[in-house]
């Protein structure tokens, strides 16, 4: 059985992610231990909160050097996705630079944060196997990743932006699959099956 490790660096909704994995019948370990993380078959990198303090935690625990070097499939979620980018406008934070793209703030044309259910489309990649175009997923965020060459799903909130991105073994989604009902569960299942 696949060994799934959720990176627990003190700034995430690790339990929600763990419960979602368990609902699918798998076990997940929450850990910040570099060796445990490296030995996993699949790594999930969640995050809720603010970019600069989350990066500070990662650096303090030495995880800023571990995460970019991982070879197995890694799934960043929400803030985890943003931290995998080069830079975030949120408190001008240098991030992990796995994806050479920058995270920017929604303009105030629409309400910020975006909270609620929105659709994903232009779906590419195995991560979305069995998921119909324009399926609803749950978002809660104020910063976003503009459409770019790594995008494997797009969403529209005043601007068309990347709902999910992929580069080599690194996957990331801005929405919360662990809170996105049956659609989200299928996405987590697809990730585990990669």
């Amino acid at each position: 059985m696949s060994k799934i490790v959720i990176i627990d660096y003190g700034a995430g909704n690790v339990r929600s992610v763990q419960f979602a994995v368990e609902r699918l019948g798998y076990k997940a370990i929450c850990s910040n231990d570099a060796e445990v993380i490296k030995s996993a078959d699949k790594v999930i990198f969640p995050g809720v909160g603010e970019a600069s303090s989350a990066m500070e935690e990662l650096r303090k625990q030495g995880l800023d050097l571990v995460i970019p070097m991982l070879m197995q499939p890694v799934l960043g979620i929400c803030l985890g996705m943003q931290l995998m980018c080069r830079f975030s406008e949120e408190n001008h934070t240098d991030c992990l630079n796995i994806f050479p793209i920058d995270v920017v703030k929604f303009n105030e044309k629409l309400k910020v944060p975006q909270i609620g259910w929105n659709v994903i489309n232009n779906l590419k990649d195995e991560l979305f196997k069995g998921i119909a175009e324009n399926s609803y997923v749950y978002y809660v965020h104020s910063y976003y990743i503009p459409e770019n060459e790594y995008a494997i799903a797009l969403t529209d909130y005043g601007v068309q932006y990347a709902g999910a991105i992929k580069k080599d073994n690194f996957y990331a989604c801005q929405f919360h699959p662990e809170k996105s009902s049956d659609i989200g569960e299928q996405i987590v299942k697809n990730f585990i099956a990669l």
Binding site: S16, E178, E185
Partner: peptide, 11 residues
């Protein structure tokens, strides 16, 4: 709260 989070897949 923990029981709800275990069981329910919406926020």
């Amino acid at each position: 709260v923990e029981k709800v989070a275990r069981r329910v897949n919406i926020p």
